[in-house]
Design a protein around this nucleic acid. Structure first.
Length: 282
DNA sequence: CACCATGTTCCTTG
DNA sequence: CCAAGGAACATGGT
């Protein structure tokens, strides 16, 4: 469930559930996801620590914990393509691809990830390379324009660069460009001032709308029912219908453009699918 | 069997 | 040194 809005909704959901809880034990079932941190170091750092806060930065989750004597510590989470994080009763069976479990006493914090592309680590290097938060003042149209001027990549590909602006993924890159009426094939440096301004605005609008949408869904992350409630995840009729209404071009290859009825086109850029309306987006 | 999938990182090439 | 391109990672769905 991994773009900025999904991670934001998850962070808001988990923050109050984790606050004040103390980690009794750490179980690493897939050491790959904690690299470069070692199992020993993670255990030593986390056992006995208490969750104090949880924030999102780009697509990352930043867990802050207080250790009884040793002061504060920060932990970084990332969902990769297929990761989920939730709380469940200690007695509940763990999902097949559970990568890490934090024993919180009565409850377990579970991180499961089918493809194991995600992370749960003490290493925060990747967060420091992130560009501005798109929904904050730090993301301003002028600096955005300057950055785009330095790139010869197609604008769609450039939007996926987390150093340009943090949190946009493959779905919202297509959606923002559609709303801004800009072709994903344009070179980043070729965008005119007003196009950059439209794109800057639509990035913020589409992400904020998605957060608002996700925030209204009754969330149940734990157990079996959790899997398919959110966003693009899930193929249950209820959730996919809910989601499809919000996506205007993504995954609509051959279907009529919601604005002009022309067929939406799928192309491949940097080995990823891009969807756009050739008529509306120039 | 083929191709597709919400992401990042590492290695190579120019 | 830097930007850009492509493969790799791992599993499951269609």
């Amino acid at each position: 469930m991994p773009e900025l809005p999904e991670v934001e909704v998850l962070a808001r959901h988990l923050a109050p559930l984790l606050r004040g809880k103390t980690i009794r034990a750490v179980h690493v079932l897939r050491s790959k996801v904690i690299r470069p941190t070692s199992v020993k170091k993670l255990e030593k750092s986390l056992i006995g620590a208490k969750f104090t806060s949880l924030h999102r930065r780009g697509k990352y989750l930043l867990f802050e914990l207080q250790r009884s004597n040793a002061g504060q510590i920060a932990c970084l989470g990332h969902l990769g393509m297929t990761g989920r994080m939730f709380l469940q009763p200690k007695a509940a069976p763990l999902p097949k691809h559970t990568a890490l479990v934090l024993d919180l006493g009565r409850l377990n914090f579970v991180y499961e990830d089918t493809r194991y592309f995600g992370r749960f680590t003490l290493d925060n290097a990747s967060v420091e390379a992130l560009g501005p938060e798109p929904l904050s003042e730090a993301f301003d149209a002028d600096s955005f324009a300057l950055e785009l001027k330095r790139s010869a990549q197609p604008i769609k590909v450039k939007l996926l660069d987390q150093g340009l602006v943090a949190g946009i993924g493959n779905i919202y890159a297509s959606e923002a460009l559609f709303r801004a009426r800009i072709s994903p094939r344009r070179k980043a440096r070729s965008l005119k001032r007003d196009e950059v301004q439209r794109l800057h605005r639509e990035i913020r609008v589409v992400l904020q709308e998605a957060i608002d949408c996700g925030s209204t869904i009754p969330l149940d992350f734990a157990g079996e029912a959790s899997k398919d409630r959110l966003f693009y995840f899930g193929t249950s009729a209820e959730s996919s219908q809910f989601y499809e209404e919000r996506l205007q071009v993504y995954d609509r290859d051959g279907k009529p453009c919601v604005t002009c009825k022309f067929a939406v086109k799928r192309i491949v850029q940097a080995a990823r699918s891009t969807f756009y309306c050739p008529k509306c987006q120039r």
